[in-house]
């Protein structure tokens, strides 16, 4: 594990160094990434120019949801965002070149083309979250504060698992990179809105099947003192770390299965 992290660090450091060689270009692309991801919040602001509440949630409350998921997703995207290129690597055969190096393949794929500009998304997520925290009147407790602090981390772990599982799927269907975006980008969009506006079956699906709800919905409802639309008990709010660990474990298994299949079929 330490070896894998070291290798990840080495590859990332190389890409950061090469990015920093063109500072102006780095600044521009980071601002671009910031602006691009901010369009989602602009859309929400436009919605709230017509209404005072969406599904019973005020703008600061939606901003809280938006800020927590954007930060978590931004973190996962920064660390694992290159995973969706796996299918292409399988197709053009460059995956083989990763297999002859003394470093886990997952690390090499994840760190490849590490893009520091993705800090733009994290930044705007944190800004929106700050706005929400300033405007919201939350009765803070230690548990709530801990939950808030854990949300980006556990959320990033859950999204990272989706990136890895999606990549593992591409071992079998090389052109299916877009399926992954449904769960990553799509999941992020979903979690920006209150769970109360979606069909209950959809909410159940993202709670029990693809547990994206644990990124921010479940803990946020607790922090905001909101009722859960599908009637989950309160203690569910404490589960994100457990769910995150479980997701990482399952993603690792999926990845192993995918890589094993690649090494036995060669394509």
């Amino acid at each position: 594990m330490a070896d894998a992290l070291r290798a990840y660090g080495l590859i990332v450091a190389m890409w950061v160094r090469s990015t920093m060689a063109y500072r102006a270009s780095f600044a521009l692309t980071t601002i671009g990434n910031f602006a691009a991801t901010a369009f989602d919040f602009v859309t929400i602001l436009l919605m709230f120019s017509h209404v005072d509440a969406l599904g019973g949630y005020s703008l600061p409350e939606v901003a809280f949801l938006y800020g927590t998921t954007s930060t978590a997703f931004g973190l996962a995207d920064l660390l694992m965002g290159s995973m969706d290129r796996l299918g292409r690597r399988v197709r053009d055969g460059t995956l083989d070149t990763l297999l002859v190096r003394p470093v886990p393949v997952l690390v090499q794929v994840a760190a490849d083309r590490f893009a520091l500009r993705r800090l733009g998304r994290i930044t705007q997520g944190l800004l929106v979250l700050t706005y929400a925290l300033v405007t919201l009147d939350i009765e803070w407790t230690v548990t709530k504060a801990a939950m808030l602090a854990l949300m980006p981390l556990c959320g990033a772990a859950i999204f990272a698992s989706v990136f890895v599982a999606g990549a593992a799927f591409q071992f079998f269907a090389q052109d299916a990179a877009e399926v992954q975006s449904s769960f990553t980008y799509g999941g992020n969009t979903l979690l920006q809105y209150p769970p109360s506006i979606f069909a209950k079956d959809l909410v159940r699906g993202v709670t029990f099947v693809v547990p994206l709800a644990f990124v921010n919905w479940v803990p946020s409802l607790y922090v905001l003192g909101r009722e859960d639309p599908i009637g989950l008990p309160d203690w569910f709010a404490l589960l994100p770390p457990v769910v995150a660990a479980g997701c990482l474990g399952l993603a690792a298994l999926a990845w192993r299965a995918g890589l094993r299949s690649y090494r036995s079929t060669g394509n």
Binding site: G93, T97, V100
Partner: peptide, 26 residues
Amino acid sequence: RTRLAQRIGVVFGQRTTLWWDLPLRD
């Protein structure tokens, strides 16, 4: 595989093991 990788060198004529967008030195 990874233990062996330390002891072997591989050159694929058709595709490079180098990082495409970076200078050779990197």
